[in-house]
Write a protein that binds this DNA or RNA. Sequence first.
DNA 1: TGGGTCATGAGCAGCCTGTTGATAGTAGAT
DNA 2: ATCTACTATCAACAGGCTGCTCATGACCCA
Lengths: 222, 222
Amino acid sequence: MSSLLIVDDEQKIREVIREYAEFNGFEVAEAEDGMDAVEICREKDFDIIVMDVMMPKLDGFSAVKAIRETKDIPVIMLSARGEEYDKLFGFEIGADDYMVKPFSPKELMARVGVILSRRAPAEDSSGKMVFDGLEIDIPARAVCVDGETVELTPKEYELLFYLAQNKGIALSRDKLLQDIWGYDYFGDDRTIDTHIKNLRNNLGPYRDKITTLRGVGYKFEA
Amino acid sequence: MSSLLIVDDEQKIREVIREYAEFNGFEVAEAEDGMDAVEICREKDFDIIVMDVMMPKLDGFSAVKAIRETKDIPVIMLSARGEEYDKLFGFEIGADDYMVKPFSPKELMARVGVILSRRAPAEDSSGKMVFDGLEIDIPARAVCVDGETVELTPKEYELLFYLAQNKGIALSRDKLLQDIWGYDYFGDDRTIDTHIKNLRNNLGPYRDKITTLRGVGYKFEA
DNA sequence: TGGGTCATGAGCAGCCTGTTGATAGTAGAT
DNA sequence: ATCTACTATCAACAGGCTGCTCATGACCCA
């Protein structure tokens, strides 16, 4: 059973979401402000968090930042109409989706489903990800090309691992910087290109598994 | 099956609408005043609400406001002739359509249909939009025609995505420029035509899904 | 049926964007 | 402390996309 944390200061909203989530087979917990949410996340792991932006004590963005420092839990942000400018910032700090109030609870649950299925682990029972002759051995932190082990630098490995984990999904340079370098990293976009180049050179015949999306970023093809 | 809530204090009206709605395959519920409606909506989700303005206990506007605080359900407002000044206010609080009594039930159902098709999220739970053999995989940023992946340039993809998202809606060249190129772009209208042409060439048998509206712009047909 | 309006198609110049290799800075190891 | 290897930035290049123009063709209305 998947677990879901609702963070909102309005009780009515929490109730509505709880009802739908429980109906969809979630184990539900509630927090009424950002502080509360950070606290609860320290004790327990959730599969997904639904977080309001505007809250007393600690706002949603700060709470997400704090939680993300130690755990990687997907987040859907909620905000009132008229605060839509927050949307950009929301994605910037790595929210997985964003909804404007009032929203349809049905649609919220649909998006929760999409995010969770997207996060489904790509590795098999032995902890390996296999794409034809390209193998990523996660526990060993090693990569094999046609049976031969290739030496990757830490960043190259992280990059490959992240791409493979999100196979088939378009990843913008921003998102890659966010998730691999960290949300507080402000560097040059071109840096990614260089690492992609080096990584491709190390993948030999499988260099084309990493496709370029002009004007967007990169994608790993399974 | 879609669900519909009728809110009106006159039983006769409720009966007429129920009959038509059920004939059109709706699951119908009734409420006889605003309070009643708010109450029912707390327990159940509807796909659309038909709401009278003038009612005892709680009027239609207030009821819509209360419901909209937590849920985003489309509403068609009904009002008696002579209360037409309410129309503006109705749209202001977010009614999706407005009809004056006495109305034709047939027309009401037609408008219900329009609103529901407009609201229907274009993508399914996996994040794909499917129109016959034309598939747009949003997370992958990829487009398939009869199972074959086609390569689209960034602008072509954006254009197709935007058109598909607004399927069935006429889009002027101005609006397309605004929303795809950006509000600060001042370019030639004909540029769009060129991109439409290129896009159509890439869609093969589905090129006719993008219809030309002479003197206006373009439209995507589902 | 004919004229005018508007969309379409092809071609092309300019520019944007990704790739690449070189280089300087940084951190870790010996 | 020195060396090594990795990381980040930069500049130059090449290729392809973009957006404009013009000629042609389709459509609408009188």
